[in-house]
Structures are given as structure tokens and as C-alpha cells.
């Protein structure tokens, strides 16, 4: 299987770093490309193009860190900030738009009401992704 185009959605967790390292190693053999995206979810009470400075700054800081991680792996990546109402559909849209070969996501162990939970984004991506998805849990 060839990994020419990998999308790494990031959210600022520790798992993102390992997911990015994994993506770098996967893509290296096929000399492919990696996109790291951060999705800012905008409340429906605000316009979609609202510039929420604090969120944009956070996104930039996380993506900067991802670039540093990729640099350490000697891999060039592209980064993007998206604003959407929900993160899941925005990630899938990006996958469809860029014709990505594989999605690599880092997830952290979450417990909700005493039960292990994947949240809402990961199940949406798993359900709707038109390509393989690799989850890295830390």
C-alpha cells in the first residue's frame, strides 16, 4: 500500500506528536506529502468567518509545533487552519478535497461517565472516511 498523501488532524494533545512522527515515517518511503490541519469549531451563534484571535493563535502554536516535530523527522509538511461548525465533516471534506490516501490521528484515552470514550470527532471520521484511518492512542 502506498502512502503518498497523509492527513494528520491535530487538536493539541500529546498524541498528536506521536501521530505526526508515525505519519512522517509512513510517508518517507513513498516520498509523499503530509498535511496537518487544525479545525477551529465556530459556534452557530457566530459567523463562520469570525476571527477569534485566541483560537487562531492556539491553532498556529499547535501547527508550529507539528512543523518542528516534522523537521526533527526531516520531513516537510503543510499546515492549514480551518474554521467549521463541526470538526468531523471539516476533516472529511479536507480528505475528499485533497484525495488523501490515509488519515493518521492521535487520540488520548478519555473516560466519560466511567466509560472509555472516543468523543464525537473520531467516530465520525471512522464512519465517513473514504480512505484508511490509523489511530494512535497514547
Amino acid at each position: 500500500m502506498e502512502f503518498k498523501k497523509i492527513l494528520v488532524p491535530v487538536g493539541g494533545t500529546e498524541a498528536d506528536e506521536e501521530a505526526m512522527r508515525l505519519a512522517c515515517r509512513l510517508v518517507k518511503k513513498d516520498k509523499g506529502k503530509i498535511w496537518a490541519v487544525y479545525v477551529i469549531t465556530i459556534k452557530r451563534s457566530l459567523p463562520l468567518d469570525a476571527e477569534i484571535e485566541i483560537d487562531i493563535r492556539k491553532a498556529e502554536a499547535i501547527l508550529d509545533h507539528m512543523e518542528t516535530v516534522a523537521d526533527e523527522e526531516d520531513q516537510e509538511i503543510e499546515t492549514d487552519v480551518l474554521q467549521a461548525r463541526e470538526a468531523g465533516p471539516a476533516i472529511i471534506d479536507e480528505v475528499v478535497d485533497r484525495q488523501v490516501d490515509v488519515i493518521v490521528m492521535g487520540i488520548k484515552h478519555k473516560v466519560h461517565l466511567g466509560q472509555f470514550s472516543l468523543g464525537s470527532v473520531v467516530p465520525y471520521v471512522l464512519k465517513n472516511a473514504p480512505c484508511p484511518v490509523i489511530l494512535y492512542q497514547r
Partner: peptide, 10 residues
């Protein structure tokens, strides 16, 4: 549903 790409200085 739509996506908006904010202006990115960095």
C-alpha cells in the same frame, strides 16, 4: 455546512 480558511500570518 461550509469551511472557512482564516487569514494566517504565520
Amino acid at each position: 455546512d461550509r469551511i472557512f480558511r482564516p487569514r494566517r500570518t504565520k
